[in-house]
Design a protein around this nucleic acid. Structure first.
Lengths: 209, 209
DNA sequence: ATAGGGTTGACCGATACGGTTAACGGAGGC
DNA sequence: GCCTCCGTTAACCGTATCGGTCAACCCTAT
């Protein structure tokens, strides 16, 4: 990959990244043409090939960038350090929304890339990351104090269920095509409030009065 | 569409349907080649064109079939009639799982088709269905008795959250590529039990003792 | 004016596409 | 044995698209 890419004005860099995320998220690796990416980025195909030697290089660069900025944003938000589960989720949500605002198709791209089966790239993808999130989730789960939550609750199930609901909500937006991040934030916020009221012992007791 | 298609042995019919669902669910309409579908179905491209005049006809037939058998299966399961919310969800789940077993890519296809933007087919798709599920959900919601649930709960939020979690769980399986329906059933069942224990007043009171 | 680098339209060979056609092959009737 | 029918296919057609290249075009700074 040509280092001159980095000396491009940041808007143009973003435009190229977003174009790549978008096109590769809509189709298989093999069925995602470079010309379409170039068009979406507002540059010529030749210039795209000037910055990235070939399709594979662009794809792996996108994957790399996707992982990098996600972790960066998550770290920066402090989501990894928060003690309380719900403030942790709130920070994570903030980070995700900021990412979504800047790179609307990053989420969809990440999922597709993760499950991409084309032998030209699948090995590299699968190798580079792996059980990142799972490991984090397990650690987070261990730190929870059952006393904070309503009695008899299965904390692991609660965690999985909340994760799935977030993903389901996210997917609804992704599939719809238009990423209305503000509406999304509203939805997430309501979800979080709902869970707090449902799962936290203190809030539940107050609501029961 | 050639009526002789229906006199094919049912396994061959299913093979063609599944092949179509699979290929069209992985890529845009335009980037989904007929040859690939024929290969996946184990027949020649020429034969596929013998049963369906052209690509558009096959695609719309698949969409139609997808809607038809989903509604059929849902009705047959009695999901639309159940009074209690959770037994209703259980029936719906059973129906969905039966569908998934027979047509592993039906779910993914449905979502993609619903949001397909290609002008050659988008109009027909959007027109044929619409707010089907939403209307149903609203009706279901009105029938709920707040007394059955934990006090202070936002029933609409609860409903949305449960819907998203199911979708999120489903998507995790879809994206993973391999549809292990048994594992899925296990997960759904646990989700349901979790919700009953969390949201139902009676079960909650028992758990609190 | 000229040298240099960012940028592109035009091009290349290969292949993939939607759709057609002529022919194959086997089952049934005579 | 011969013919007919019909499900099925390999081979083909014209076109479009693909990944990738290249010579030439700006534009700016000397």
């Amino acid at each position: 990959m040509n280092p001159k890419f980095y000396s491009l004005p940041t808007e143009k860099q973003s435009a190229i990244l977003n174009a790549g995320f978008h096109v590769f998220s809509q189709n298989t690796y093999k069925k995602s043409p470079m010309s379409e990416i170039a068009d979406a980025a507002g540059i010529s195909k030749a210039l795209l090939f000037h910055y990235f030697r070939n399709k594979k290089e662009l794809y792996l660069f996108l994957w790399d960038t996707c992982c990098r900025i996600t972790v960066e944003e998550m770290t920066r938000s402090g989501a990894y350090e928060q003690r309380d589960l719900f403030t942790c989720m709130d920070s994570g949500m903030q980070a995700k929304l900021r990412l979504m605002r800047q790179y609307p198709d990053l989420g969809a791209f990440a999922v597709r890339a993760f499950y991409e089966k084309d032998p030209e790239v699948s090995a590299e993808i699968r190798e580079s990351m792996g059980q990142y999130l799972d490991a984090h989730a397990a650690k987070k789960l261990q730190k929870l104090d059952p006393e904070d939550f309503i009695p008899g609750i299965d904390l692991q199930m609660m965690y999985r269920e909340m994760y799935w609901a977030s993903e389901g909500c996210l997917w609804e937006y992704i599939q719809r095509g238009c990423m209305d991040v503000n509406a999304m934030e509203e939805d997430f916020r309501r979800l979080l409030a709902h869970w707090k009221k449902t799962y936290l012992r203190k809030e539940r007791e107050e609501a029961s009065l």
